Amino acid sequence: MQVRNCLVSAPGKAILHGEHAVVHGKAALAVSLNLRTYLRLNATFNGKVCINLPNMDTFLCWDLSELKQLVTCSGEKKEEGQRLDAEFVKRLRDFLGATDGSLNSSNTAILAFLYIYLSLFGSGELPSLTVTVWSELPPGAGLGSSAAYSVCLAAALLCASGTITSPLKEWEHTARWCQEDLELINSWAFQGELMIHGNPSGVDNAVGTWGGMLRFLAGKIIPLSRVPLLRILLTNTKVPRSTKVLVARVKDRINKFPSIMIPVLDSVDAISCTCEKVLTDMTCEPITGEHYNILEELIDINQHHLNVMGVGNPALDTLCRVTLAKGLHSKLTGAGGGGCGITLLRPETDSLIVQSTVQDLRDCSFDCWETSIGGPGVQQHSLVSVKEEVLEVLNSY
């Protein structure tokens, strides 16, 4: 089977408001992060399937005959809505040498690739191809790097299999799929996330698929049609943390002080709803300084609430203090206890202020980037639409 070459990308994600409260039935706002993962799929004629993950220093090739032996005997094509085929997953894990049940992040990424590739192509002739993935997202920082990877895999392999058609016209530099195709991409990306994380919420892959902003409430994910593109600083404190431990800490505090903590959760819910309304207003009317004033106040209030929940950290306190000294407002994003924070930048924020703030944060041993939130979800690209440094990496393998 011959496939067509394609180049796709998907964004990372950040939680704007609602961390931890969402676990207790409150609304959370997740936004796309304009740090992206890129995947290039090239058809080959060497009888091999190769995957290159330079971020993970992982480069693997298999003969098609090896992979064909992994396909289920029935040869039936799996549907994206079905649960993971446990027997098939076991066969793939054994193939990768994870007989003790443990896989590192590199192997789980390979597992997701093989699962989607063989599920989509296993009922017929396996195509020879090379997939190269490179990401601007730091791994393990709660920024949806694995979901962006899974979304890229799903989009590229669905296109390669002919299940969905390429949306890119000859004269276009970037293009997006129709709603029906995006739903299919999201379903397969969730399969990839299941392979990598075991029990994902589905929020990260939904953000990677649709982009913009999503409201997550009581297990329901609702994409919001229009949101403004907001400039931010993204800071990684590089302080490791356990999401599981932090979620348990918040739960313990709620059980211990329900009369104190339940109103805090209600307040966080109101922050999410108020923020959503402000952002919607910003797409329907002229943007004013008052819009940004409200967004900054909501950031400050929510950060205080997160500290009350017990998920703050001295490094995050430092981030807030350093940025506030420059007149900027910050909060943690994700689980807290370290990890990452976001800082809102106004349109009129002077570039020298931004540069000095970034340098001050780097002097604290943090990683810091200027980027934006609210951008597009998964896209197909022409070669001329991708940044030169990204193309250089993708063309190296």
Rank of each mutant, 00 (worst) to 15 (best):
S259Q: 15
V264D: 04
L265W: 05
D266M: 07
V268G: 07
D269Y: 02
D269E: 03
A270Y: 06
I271N: 09
S272Q: 03
C273W: 09
T274V: 08
T274E: 10
C275G: 13
E276T: 08
K277D: 09
K277A: 11
V278I: 15
V278M: 13
L279D: 14
T280Y: 05
T280W: 04
D281Q: 15
E285G: 10
P286Y: 11
P286N: 11
I287W: 02
T288W: 09
H291Y: 14
Y292N: 06
Y292H: 13
N293L: 06
L295R: 13
E297G: 15
I299K: 09
D300I: 14
I301W: 03
H305E: 07
L306D: 04
L306S: 05
G310M: 00
V311P: 00
V311A: 00
V311Y: 00
G312C: 10
P314I: 00
D317Y: 01
T318K: 12
C320S: 06
C320L: 01
C320H: 01
V322M: 04
L324A: 13
G327S: 02
G327R: 01
L328T: 10
L328V: 10
H329A: 11
K331Q: 10
K331N: 09
K331H: 10
L332K: 00
L332D: 00
T333F: 07
G334M: 14
G334F: 15
G336E: 02
C340S: 04
C340M: 02
G341H: 10
I342F: 02
I342W: 01
T343A: 02
L344A: 03
P347D: 03
P347C: 02
E348N: 06
E348H: 11
T349Q: 13
T349N: 12
D350P: 06
S351I: 12
S351W: 06
L352N: 12
L352A: 14
I353E: 05
V354H: 10
V354A: 07
Q355Y: 05
V358N: 09
Q359D: 11
Q359E: 14
Q359P: 04
L361I: 12
R362M: 12
R362N: 10
C364K: 02
C364V: 00
S365D: 13
F366R: 00
W369A: 04
W369G: 03
W369T: 08
E370G: 13
T371G: 03
